[in-house]
């Protein structure tokens, strides 16, 4: 095989990858021919030592495919977090993925509409906080089953207002906020870490776990839920 044939076959077999990536790869193999010929080898010799271009292309494509999957896994970390927290890790990802994806989309919608209602919340800080993982609505479409509401966030905000109406849990211990207003009507628990003020109203059975000692604590409890002040080592 000549150099031209080798490169042409390689290019054909790489078709579909990003053009820049193909150019980079082809440049590598062209340089290899340059070196080989400069060292006194024939093009045929270099080509046969390189191996089958189809096979090399498969290897290169597999490498790129793996990478794409790895980078796309990041937004899907949300799904992964939900799955592990829901104890569903063992379930086949291919069966659950569409369901979970729909659930997380619905959850994100909920979260966003929630954000719009919050007054004085520094929305941007929350939305931009990288650890904001998501809200899952599981089985909600299946006869209004259990509502799992899961918020996990880190970052900072001036005022955080959380309403828990269902059985969801708000894991907000990582979110450093000055003030937190929390209202629990359901059975969901909340982990919070406000620095200055905590305004807690529990009408349901959910507990609020305080990961800090806020300067002002204002609480009203109408339900069976409790406010638990965690000591240092219990905090996350």
């Amino acid at each position: 095989m000549t150099r031209t044939e080798f490169i042409a076959q390689l290019r054909r077999a790489l078709a579909g990858m990003a053009p820049k990536e193909i150019d980079d790869i082809v440049a590598d193999y062209s340089a290899h021919f340059d070196e080989g010929v400069a060292a006194g080898r024939s093009e045929q010799d270099v080509a046969s030592a390189l191996g089958d271009p189809q096979r090399l292309a498969r290897e290169l494509r597999a490498e790129a495919g793996l990478r794409r999957w790895e980078t796309q896994r990041r937004p899907a970390a949300l799904i992964g977090a939900m799955m592990s927290l829901g104890g569903m890790l063992a379930l086949d990802i291919f069966i659950l993925l569409p369901l979970l994806f729909a659930g997380s989309l619905a959850g994100l919608g909920l979260l966003l509409s929630g954000l719009l209602h919050w007054d004085n919340v520094s929305t941007v800080a929350i939305v931009a906080s990288p650890m904001l993982a998501g809200i899952g609505l599981l089985g909600g479409s299946l006869g209004g089953g259990a509502l799992l509401w899961l918020v996990r966030a880190s970052g900072s905000a001036d005022l955080l207002k959380v309403d828990i109406m269902g059985s969801g849990a708000a894991l907000l211990a990582q979110l450093a906020v000055r003030s937190t207003k929390i209202f629990i009507a359901g059975s969901g628990d909340a982990d919070i870490a406000p620095i200055d003020d905590a305004d807690i109203f529990i009408a349901g059975s959910g507990d609020v776990r305080l990961h800090t000692h806020p300067k002002h604590l204002n609480s009203k409890i109408a339900g069976s839920g409790r406010i638990i002040e965690l000591s240092g080592e219990q905090r996350t």
């Binding site: 790869i25 590598d28 193999y29 290899h32 270099v46 030592a49 390189l50 191996g51 271009p53 090399l56 290897e59 290169l60 490498e63 990478r67």
Partner: peptide
């Protein structure tokens, strides 16, 4: 080793 396999490997190591 086939000489050609160095390139997929170097790309991976670089990434």
């Amino acid at each position: 080793m086939g000489e050609g396999t160095i390139y997929p490997l170097m790309r991976r190591l670089q990434i």
